[in-house]
Amino acid sequence: MKRINIAKCVVLLLIFAFCTTNTFAAGTTLRINGQEFSSGIKTIEGKQYISVDALSSYLEGVSITQENNSIDINSLNRISNVVSKVSPSVVGIIGKLKESSYEYDETSDNIIFGTGVIYRSNGYIITNAHVVKDMESIVVVLSNSKAYKARLKAIDEDLDLAEIKIDKGGLQPATFGDISKVAVGDEVVAIGTPLSFGLRNSATRGIISGMNRSENRQYRFLQTDAAINSGNSGGPLVNMKGEVVGINSWVYAGIGVQSMGFSIPIDTVKYAIDQFERFGKIRRPYLGLVFSDSITSLYGLPNTAEGVTVKSIEKNSPAQKYNIKVDDRLISINGVKINSTTDYNEEMKKYLPGDIAEFKLQRDNREFNITVTFGEK
């Protein structure tokens, strides 16, 4: 006798009905929750069927087991599965505030803490720059409560990312997601160390509330309504596959403000890790141009004007060698449109000092192109 969970049986019936009311050619594509699959579908006597094994691999949050003549389909607790999968890759970071820090207080113990994510099994951890920049005697506490001394390997305050290292192997690295597959409304979980170090590896649930948020900062962020509190900084924002899609960085706080957290997108995290491992720092291309954002860009209004205005040119900078003047408008770089300082900074992640790019500029309603070679500051 076959035992099939009634709720999940509906899924099977829908698939069967879909297949039997349509004539499919070889190489039929099946879509489940918008994701396309082409394997596991067979045609028998003119009707299409999907195997239980294939269905099991396609449906997230569903467990399908076969035993003798029994097929069991059960819902899984997706949140607990995500937390269980990711938690071994999440660490607490604790240390003492340096006396040189402006936040140092002689009347307190000056203990500060945050969160980090293991990304290599030999002890490499990514976290926020603001977590460790003023921290001495850095200690990392794993999910099994074992503690290890850590050393700072690389840091970049503009990106708010830092790399630290512990001398411990056999760790479980987190799986990084694909930013191109992240969308507003996706369910996410934030894991970290909120408010107290005794609360490390706490999990909160929410959604992706917005994409490409700059909020007058240098780079773009993911917005989420998952609760992020002091101490969550440096922890992961993960999707329902248990993949890290962002590193939690900051929140809006104040009267009337609720659930507005911001995470560094995983593509920026990957960029930083690549630079840290290759150079020990972020090597930015440099021209010495300072831009003035339009009022529409600053307030996030629809921008009808193209480009971003050159406000000033730094003395003795590479830009002085080229036909660039104050009040010129930078329209695009190698064909990519630039409408804000954030756009410019994001585009610069594609280049290294010494690289060449074509700038399209506008002056007195006349457009022209120049070729520039980036320096290094």
Rank of each mutant, 00 (worst) to 15 (best):
G231D: 00
R217T: 06
T268H: 08
I273Q: 04
F221L: 06
N201E: 02
S230H: 09
R213F: 07
R278K: 14
A203Y: 05
D225R: 11
Q258I: 06
N216T: 15
D293E: 11
Y286A: 12
G231T: 06
N248K: 07
I255N: 07
E215K: 13
A226Y: 00
G206V: 06
S263G: 03
G288S: 07
N201F: 08
E215Y: 15
G234Q: 08
G261K: 05
A253C: 04
N212Y: 14
S230F: 02
K241W: 12
Y299N: 15
S233I: 01
Q223A: 12
G280Y: 10
I255T: 14
I247P: 05
V257A: 03
G235K: 01
Y299H: 08
N216V: 12
A226S: 07
S233W: 01
G231N: 09
P285M: 11
K270L: 06
G280R: 09
A272D: 00
Q223V: 13
R213S: 02
S249H: 14
G288I: 09
A272H: 00
N248S: 08
S214W: 04
G235N: 11
G261C: 11
S297L: 02
G280F: 06
V245G: 04
V251W: 04
G234F: 07
T224V: 05
L237G: 01
I247A: 01
I228W: 07
Y252F: 08
R217Y: 12
F291M: 04
I207V: 12
T296H: 15
Y271M: 13
G256F: 13
L287K: 05
M260N: 09
I228L: 01
N212F: 11
G254S: 11
V257L: 02
W250E: 11
Q218R: 15
F276W: 10
I266G: 02
L289C: 03
G234M: 02
G210W: 05
R278D: 15
A253I: 14
Q223G: 06
E243H: 11
G234V: 00
A272G: 07
G261Q: 07
R220T: 14
L222M: 10
A227Q: 08
L298K: 08
V290I: 14
E277T: 03
G261A: 14
S209L: 07
V245K: 05
N239D: 01
T296N: 15
F276S: 00
R283E: 11
R278P: 12
M240F: 12
F291L: 03
I228G: 01
Q218V: 14
F262N: 04
G280S: 05
I264L: 12
G242P: 05
S233L: 01
R205E: 13
P285I: 03
R283H: 09
A226P: 00
G246K: 03
I207L: 10
I266S: 03
S259G: 08
V238G: 02
R205W: 04
S259M: 10
R284M: 11
K281C: 09
W250R: 04
G280V: 04
Q275L: 04
S230E: 05
A272I: 02
V238A: 03
F262Q: 08
G210T: 01
E243R: 01
I273H: 04
K281S: 10
S214C: 10
N212Q: 15
N239S: 09
S263T: 10
N229G: 01
R213P: 13
